[in-house]
């Protein structure tokens, strides 16, 4: 059975909610398995992620058609690679608008690409409305909410329901400020840090471990969904069933 490749879209409407941090964690998690991977940093003014992963993450400006072609045409052509997108507030609306307008979901389904939005929640009422609207608009995309405890004290779960109860909210625990400074250092690698524990596990080890475990769980659920769908003999059913 040909397996689907994931297109992860780490999205947030607002800055400083941990979007790039989550994308860094996700990329490092996906790299552990050694799978083919590519990333796009859609924050043309401040492409922090692209700076963290040269030759793996490419900065793109999708404000014009050329940038949109560079992104979406490449994604559909590269179906053999897992793609990770860091989508910031500046181009947030335009990204989803273009995605809907060009019929990306249908093409993705045909090419066995599964879009998964990791949506970073925040307390602004408009964010919850946006989440609801996007879920309704993109029926074949899986939505998984993310709660970054360092950015917002609490998340109202009913405002951010995942596409299916089997996909749990990804929780990023709060880190102490001192330790936070460590992971923000240029060149810091989560996976390298995990493999080195000279003095035994630290707060950071446990923090990374918790997040990676949630990624593992998400990937497992995606795989189970796909297997269930193939047993039923359809691709589209998987999505409708997950909603």
């Amino acid at each position: 059975m040909p397996q689907r490749t994931q297109l992860y879209i780490v999205a947030s409407r607002h800055p400083r909610v941990g979007k790039t941090l989550l994308t860094r964690l996700l990329i490092e998690f996906l790299r552990i398995g050694g799978r083919p991977l590519v990333g796009y940093d859609l924050n043309p003014r401040e492409p922090t992620l692209a700076g963290c992963f040269p030759n793996l993450v490419w900065p793109l400006d999708i404000a014009d058609t050329r940038g949109q072609m560079a992104l979406f045409d490449r994604i559909v052509a590269d179906r053999w690679r897992t793609t990770v997108i860091d989508l910031g507030g500046g181009l947030f609306d335009q990204f989803f608008e273009v995605m809907a307008q060009i019929g990306f979901e249908d093409e993705a389904r045909q090419r066995l690409i599964q879009p998964v939005v990791l949506f970073i929640s925040d307390a602004a009422p408009f964010t919850a409305q946006t989440y609801t609207k996007l879920r309704a608009q993109l029926e074949q995309t899986i939505f998984v909410p993310v709660h970054n405890e360092a950015a917002s004290f609490m998340m109202i779960a009913k405002d951010f329901p995942p596409s299916s109860p089997k996909f749990r909210t990804i929780r990023i625990p709060r880190l102490s400020p001192v330790v936070r400074g460590l992971i923000d250092r240029p060149g810091f690698s989560f996976s390298t840090y995990m493999s080195q524990q000279p003095g035994g596990p630290t707060e950071v080890h446990s923090w990374i471990g918790q997040i990676f475990a949630q990624f593992r769980e998400l990937e497992l659920q995606l795989l189970i969904g796909e297997l269930e769908s193939s047993l039923r003999g359809g691709g589209k059913e998987q999505i409708s069933q997950t909603r």
Binding site: T65, Q68, M69, F72, D73, V76, V98, Q101, I102, G103, F104, E107
Partner: peptide
């Protein structure tokens, strides 16, 4: 042809 441009034309 570009998938994006085909999408725009279709829409």
């Amino acid at each position: 042809y570009s998938f994006v441009l085909r999408g725009y034309v279709r829409h």
